[in-house]
Amino acid sequence: MKTVLCYGDSLTWGFNAEGGRHPFEDRWPNVLQAALDHSVRVIAEGLNGRTTAYDEYNAGADRNGARILPTIVMTHTPLDLVIFLLGTNDMKPWIHGNPVAAKQGMQSLVETVRSHDYGWPTPQILIVAPPVVSHTENVEFKEMFSGGEASSKHLAPLYAALAEEMGCCFFDASTVATTTPLDGVHLDAKNTRKIGEALAPIVCAMLETKETFRG
């Protein structure tokens, strides 16, 4: 059986801007799973507020994606593919607010996966740029992601260049999904499903399991 780890933030967790959490079947990792047969297992590891590699001290959980990644990977080893969908929270001014910093954080995640001593073959890596931050009248989120509309637009080209440099695959989620104006950051059910649907053929090609794709 092939195993895929989806490592992300609230977009992977399934945060619903209307309140609560999207139903299980609408979260993109589960949409991806539904597009594959039982020869591929998809594991969703999403945490609200997770960054690529930076600390967030006003949270009850460790949101530094780089620090917790080795534990997550070792928990689920052996893995065939790791999908990273992170970077939005790096755009918070008090985190970093700089897309170049997000790129450097993403690079550290890739290096961690490739340098860790698993005792198993190193998994492939797919870097996914999150949908760009959009305009919102939600006062809290507007301030929380101040400057995010402009800075988040640079994530996709920076991630694409990083993927080429490091021999990873890349996908820009903004090509299929847009964030909701309710908060400018999260996705409605339709758009989170679009990400899972778009990633299915890419994952199949990477795992060389095209016959398992149900799309």
Rank of each mutant, 00 (worst) to 15 (best):
L5T: 04
C6W: 05
L11Y: 03
L11E: 06
F15E: 12
P23A: 08
N30R: 06
V31G: 05
D37L: 09
H38G: 08
S39I: 13
E45W: 14
G46D: 14
T52Q: 05
N58H: 13
G60A: 13
G60K: 05
D62N: 10
R67D: 14
L69N: 14
P70H: 08
V73Q: 03
T75D: 15
L79D: 13
L85V: 04
T88H: 07
D90V: 02
I95H: 02
P99I: 13
A101P: 00
Q104T: 09
L109T: 04
V110Y: 04
E111F: 00
V113S: 11
V113Y: 03
S115N: 10
D117C: 09
G119S: 15
W120M: 10
W120T: 15
V128T: 02
V132N: 05
V133D: 01
M144I: 11
S146D: 15
G147Q: 00
L155E: 10
L158Q: 01
E165Q: 13
F170C: 15
A173P: 00
S174F: 09
S174I: 14
V176I: 04
P181G: 06
P181H: 00
G184D: 01
D188K: 08
A189N: 14
I195R: 04
I195V: 12
G196D: 10
I202D: 00
V203N: 00
A205G: 04
M206N: 05
K210M: 07
G215N: 12
